[in-house]
Write a protein that binds this DNA or RNA. Structure first.
Length: 572
RNA sequence: CGGGGCGUAGCGCAGCUUGGUAGCGCGCCUGCUUUGGGAGCAGGAUGUCGCAGGUUCGAAUCCUGCCGCCCCGACCA
C-alpha cells in the first residue's frame, strides 16, 4: 500500500478524552474513530490488525476441530424467553420491536441461537461432539463504556460453543479450547495468564479467564510464583488456617458495653478505643435472596461478596438497607455486632480463635468489649469469605502469592446443561435413551486483544506491534520522494517485497523526513526500511527494528531476503 | 442511577466573571524556498459559539429547560 493513497489519518496531538494508552494510540494512529458512546469504527489501519488477530483465531480454532459459522445479531425474544434470560439479563440486553410489534434484541452472546440450531439438527450421539464458532459483533448496553475499544458496547467477539454427550467429553472439549487459547495468545505475542474464575451468572461448573498482564487492566489476578495456581480476585481461595490455638474460656475477660457516641467505622472504633483493627470484628448484614444474614470478619479484612454468594448458593446478594439492619440487630449501621443478633451468622476464617474482641453492641452509640464466641454469641459456621491481599499465601502450596492487574481477553466456561435443558437440546444415546447435551462456551474479545497488545507494547513515540498482528510487516520510508534514484529504488523494493508476500506500506508522501519518521514510530510497524538520497547512491539502505531501535545498514540487493529472514524470526 | 466537569473552526483550546457583531495553536488550500527526526515566508478558506426558550436595544457571555460527552462511584459476560 502506498501511504499517499491510504486512508490513514494520524493525529499529532493527544485526544483530550482518551484515558488509557491503547485508546490514545488507536486514535492517534488512525485505527479507530468513535461514532457514538461505546461504538467505534475501525479505519483501514486498525482493521488490518483486527483481521490479523481473527486469522490467528481461525487457524487455531480450526486446528482444534471447531467449525466456523455465522449467526444473526438480531434475535427474537421468544428464544430468550425460553432460556429465561429475557427476564434475567437486565438492561444490558438492548431490546426493540419490529414493524409488526414483535420483540427482538441485539445479541449480547449467542447461547440461545446456537442451542436452537443444534437442537434442531443433532439428534444422535453419533453426531457428537461438535464445536461451532463464529466471529460476530455483540451488543451489550454497558452501564459505562470507557477506555475506547476495551470496554465498549458494540464489539467483535469470537464465540465458540461445544456440545458433548457426557461430562468426560466436555472435559476434553474444554481442554482443547484451553490449549487453543494458549496458542492464540502466544502467537499474538502477548504476555498472558490463564486464571481460575468464578462462573458468575452464566452458570456452569468451571471457568478460566485469559488475562493479558497490564497495569491498566480492570481486574486483579493472583498467581503463585512457585506452583501453577492462578485465579482472579473473586475466585482466589484462602486456605483455612491450620494451627489455630483453641479458645481458652479461662482467659475470657468480662464483657463490657462502652459508650461510643457516633463512632461507626472500624477506623473510628480503633481510634476511640485505642485498639488495633485486628481486635475488632466487623459485622455486615447482607440480604441473600431476601433473607438477612450476618457476616463476621476481622476488622482489617474485606468481605468478598462473590464468596458469600457462592457459600450461600443464592442468586442475589446485597448489603442490607437500614430497615433490615434495624430489624435483625436492633441498632443502626455502625453499631452492629453478633451478640443477640436475630439471623444466621457466618464468620470468616480470619476469626478462628479470636477472643476478647470488640464489636458493635447492637445498641445505638455502644460497642462491646471482650465479647467471646460461645459465651456471648454463637458462630456455627466458618468459611473463606474474605478478599485476598498482599501477604496471603497460595492455597495450594503455601508460598507467598503475587497480585497483578490484567485485561480479560478470553473466557472459557463449562456450561453443563444450563441452556440445553431449558431449550431441550437432547439426543439419543447408544441405548436409545434420551439425554441432554453437555455444553461449553468459549469467548475471545477481538478488539480487546488488539488493544491489550498496545497496552503491553508501546513507548513514548507510539505503538510497537508484534509481527504476528502488525497491520503491516514493513514500512519503506523514502526520505526524499523527489530524489529520482530514491524513488525508483523504493518502487523496486516495494514491488519485490509485495511479490514475496510481505505486507508493506510505502511512505511515498512528499513530506519532510521528520514527519515520516514520527508517523512510522507512531504506527509501530515492526520493520522500517529507510531509503535516503546519499546512502542509496552508494546502494545502501537502512533497516530499523521498531522494538529494539537497532539500525543496520545493508546493501540494496540483499534487503529483500533480509526482511524475509527477520520476519520469520519475529514470528517465532 | 448518584457526584463532579465540559460542550466555541477538522483537532486542542482561549474568550463568559463585568453583555457590544468571534480569537489562538495545530491541521487544511495556493505560491515560493526547504528536504535524515513533526520546516520557513507570503497569501487564503472554515463557525447555526450543543439545542430550545427567556431577559435585553443587543447574548458565546445572564436565566430556565433539554440533549450530548468525559471523569469518579454503584453495576457487570
Amino acid at each position: 500500500m502506498r501511504y499517499s493513497e491510504m486512508f490513514l489519518p494520524t493525529i499529532r496531538e493527544l485526544p483530550s478524552d482518551a484515558e488509557v494508552v491503547s485508546h490514545q494510540l488507536m486514535l492517534r494512529a488512525g485505527m479507530i474513530r468513535r461514532l457514538a458512546n461505546g461504538i467505534y469504527s475501525y479505519l483501514p489501519f486498525g482493521y488490518r490488525a483486527i483481521r490479523k488477530v481473527e486469522q490467528i483465531v481461525r487457524e487455531e480454532m480450526n486446528k482444534a476441530g471447531a467449525q466456523e459459522l455465522f449467526m444473526p445479531m438480531v434475535q427474537p425474544a421468544e428464544l430468550w424467553q425460553e432460556s429465561g434470560r429475557w427476564q434475567l439479563y437486565g438492561k444490558e440486553l438492548l431490546r426493540f420491536k419490529d414493524r409488526g410489534e414483535r420483540e427482538f434484541c441485539l445479541g449480547p452472546t449467542h447461547e440461545e441461537v446456537i442451542t436452537d440450531i443444534v437442537r434442531n439438527e443433532v439428534k444422535s450421539y453419533r453426531h457428537l461432539p461438535r464445536n461451532l464458532y463464529q466471529i460476530q459483533m455483540k451488543f451489550r448496553d454497558e452501564v459505562r463504556p470507557r477506555f475506547g475499544v476495551m470496554r465498549c458496547r458494540e464489539f467483535a467477539m469470537k464465540d465458540a460453543y461445544s456440545f458433548d454427550a457426557d461430562y468426560a467429553g466436555l472435559d476434553m472439549s474444554y481442554q482443547k479450547m484451553h490449549k487453543a487459547y494458549c496458542n492464540i495468545f502466544s502467537r499474538c505475542g502477548l504476555e498472558y495468564r490463564a486464571v481460575e474464575a468464578d462462573t458468575g451468572s452464566i452458570g456452569g461448573s468451571s471457568s478460566h479467564e485469559f488475562m493479558v498482564m497490564a497495569q491498566t487492566g480492570e481486574s486483579e489476578v493472583v498467581y503463585c510464583p512457585q506452583c501453577q495456581y492462578a485465579a482472579n480476585m473473586e475466585k482466589a481461595e484462602i486456605a483455612k488456617p491450620q494451627d489455630v490455638a483453641p479458645l481458652n474460656a479461662n482467659k475470657f475477660l468480662p464483657m463490657e458495653e462502652i459508650y461510643t457516641p457516633n463512632v461507626r467505622t472500624i477506623e473510628e472504633v480503633c481510634n476511640f478505643l485505642q485498639v488495633s483493627a485486628k481486635d475488632v470484628v466487623k459485622t455486615l448484614i447482607m440480604v441473600a435472596d431476601g433473607n438477612p444474614v450476618a457476616i463476621l470478619i476481622r476488622g482489617d479484612e474485606d468481605v468478598n461478596e462473590i464468596k458469600v454468594k457462592n457459600y450461600l448458593q443464592c442468586a442475589e446478594i446485597e448489603l442490607a438497607d437500614e430497615t433490615t439492619i434495624m430489624s435483625v440487630a436492633g441498632s443502626p449501621r455502625g453499631f452492629v455486632g453478633a451478640v443477640g443478633i436475630k439471623c444466621r451468622v457466618i464468620a470468616d476464617y480470619s476469626l478462628l480463635g479470636a477472643g476478647n474482641v470488640v464489636m458493635g453492641a447492637n445498641k445505638e452509640d455502644y460497642h462491646s468489649k471482650n465479647a467471646n464466641p460461645g459465651r456471648d454469641y454463637d458462630v456455627k459456621e466458618f468459611a473463606d469469605l474474605r478478599v485476598m491481599h498482599d501477604g496471603d499465601v497460595c492455597p495450594r502450596c503455601g508460598s507467598l502469592i503475587r497480585i497483578v492487574r490484567g485485561i480479560e481477553v478470553g473466557h472459557i466456561f463449562k456450561l453443563g446443561t444450563k441452556y440445553s435443558e431449558k431449550l431441550r437440546a437432547v439426543f439419543l444415546d447408544a441405548e436409545g435413551k434420551e439425554r441432554v447435551m453437555i455444553m461449553g462456551c468459549y469467548g475471545i474479545g477481538i478488539g480487546r486483544t488488539v488493544a491489550s497488545s498496545i497496552e503491553q507494547n508501546h513507548d513514548e513515540s507510539g505503538i510497537i506491534w508484534p509481527m504476528a498482528i502488525a497491520p503491516f510487516d514493513v514500512i519503506i520510508t523514502t526520505v526524499n520522494i523527489n530524489d529520482e534514484l530514491s524513488h525508483s529504488r523504493s518502487q523496486q523494493l516495494y514491488d519485490e517485497l509485495s511479490a514475496a508476500g510481505v505486507d508493506v506500506l510505502w511512505d511515498d508522501r512528499n513530506e519532510r523526513a521528520g514527519v515520516k519518521f514520527n508517523d512510522a514510530d507512531l504506527l509501530g510497524i515492526p520493520l522500517r526500511i529507510t531509503i535516503g538520497p546519499k546512502k542509496i547512491s552508494e546502494n545502501i539502505v537502512e533497516i530499523k527494528e521498531r522494538k529494539s531501535g537497532a539500525v543496520t545498514e545493508i546493501g540494496f540487493s540483499e534487503i529483500c531476503s533480509k526482511v524475509l529472514e527477520v520476519k520469520r524470526k519475529l514470528l517465532g
